[in-house]
Simulated assay, not measured.
Amino acid sequence: MAALALCAGATLSPAWAGLGMTRLPASGDDGPVTVFYPSDAAERPVWAGWQPVPLATDAPPAAGNGRLVVLSHGSGGTPWVHLDLARRLTEAGFVVALPQHRGDHAGDPGTPGPESWSRRPGEVRRAIDAVLADGRWPGLDARRVGLWGLSAGGHTALELAGGRWSPARFAEHCRQHIAEDFAACVGLYAELTGGPLDGLKRWLAPRALDSRFGSDTTWRHERDERIAAVVAVVPLAADFDPASLQRPAVPLGLVNAAQDRWLLPAWHGLRVLQGCTGCEDLATLPDGGHGAMLSPPPPVGGLAGRLLADPPGFDRAATVPAVEQRTVAFFQRHLLR
Score class of each variant (00 low, 15 high):
residue 144 R to N: 11
residue 145 V to D: 14
residue 145 V to N: 12
residue 146 G to C: 05
residue 146 G to R: 03
residue 146 G to F: 02
residue 147 L to Y: 13
residue 147 L to V: 08
residue 147 L to A: 11
residue 148 W to E: 03
residue 149 G to R: 01
residue 150 L to S: 15
residue 150 L to F: 14
residue 150 L to Q: 15
residue 151 S to Q: 07
residue 152 A to I: 01
residue 153 G to H: 00
residue 153 G to F: 00
residue 154 G to R: 03
residue 154 G to D: 05
residue 155 H to Y: 13
residue 155 H to G: 02
residue 155 H to L: 04
residue 157 A to G: 12
residue 157 A to V: 12
residue 158 L to M: 06
residue 159 E to I: 03
residue 159 E to H: 12
residue 159 E to N: 13
residue 159 E to C: 08
residue 160 L to A: 02
residue 160 L to C: 02
residue 160 L to D: 05
residue 160 L to K: 01
residue 162 G to N: 06
residue 163 G to M: 07
residue 163 G to S: 11
residue 163 G to F: 05
residue 164 R to A: 08
residue 164 R to E: 13
residue 165 W to Y: 08
residue 165 W to D: 00
residue 166 S to W: 11
residue 166 S to C: 11
residue 166 S to H: 11
residue 167 P to V: 01
residue 168 A to W: 09
residue 168 A to F: 08
residue 169 R to Q: 13
residue 170 F to G: 03
residue 170 F to H: 09
residue 170 F to D: 03
residue 171 A to Y: 06
residue 171 A to K: 06
residue 171 A to C: 10
residue 171 A to W: 06
residue 171 A to Q: 10
residue 172 E to D: 15
residue 172 E to V: 03
residue 172 E to Y: 11
residue 173 H to S: 07
residue 173 H to V: 01
residue 173 H to F: 02
residue 174 C to D: 09
residue 174 C to S: 12
residue 174 C to R: 06
residue 175 R to P: 14
residue 176 Q to G: 12
residue 176 Q to P: 13
residue 177 H to F: 11
residue 178 I to F: 06
residue 178 I to K: 05
residue 179 A to S: 09
residue 179 A to V: 06
residue 179 A to R: 11
residue 180 E to K: 03
residue 180 E to Q: 14
residue 180 E to V: 03
residue 180 E to W: 02
residue 180 E to G: 01
residue 181 D to I: 02
residue 181 D to T: 04
residue 181 D to Y: 05
residue 181 D to V: 04
residue 182 F to K: 01
residue 182 F to T: 00
residue 182 F to W: 01
residue 183 A to D: 13
residue 184 A to Q: 10
residue 185 C to H: 03
residue 185 C to M: 07
residue 185 C to R: 01
residue 185 C to S: 08
residue 186 V to I: 13
residue 186 V to D: 07
residue 186 V to L: 11
residue 188 L to G: 04
residue 188 L to E: 07
residue 189 Y to P: 15
residue 189 Y to K: 15
residue 191 E to C: 05
residue 191 E to N: 13
residue 191 E to Q: 14
residue 191 E to V: 04
residue 192 L to V: 10
residue 192 L to C: 14
residue 192 L to P: 13
residue 192 L to Y: 05
residue 193 T to E: 15
residue 193 T to W: 12
residue 194 G to S: 12
residue 194 G to I: 02
residue 194 G to E: 08
residue 195 G to A: 10
residue 195 G to W: 07
residue 195 G to I: 04
residue 195 G to T: 11
residue 196 P to R: 04
residue 196 P to Y: 04
residue 196 P to N: 06
residue 196 P to G: 09
residue 197 L to P: 15
residue 198 D to N: 09
residue 199 G to L: 07
residue 199 G to V: 08
residue 199 G to F: 07
residue 201 K to P: 09
residue 201 K to C: 03
residue 201 K to I: 03
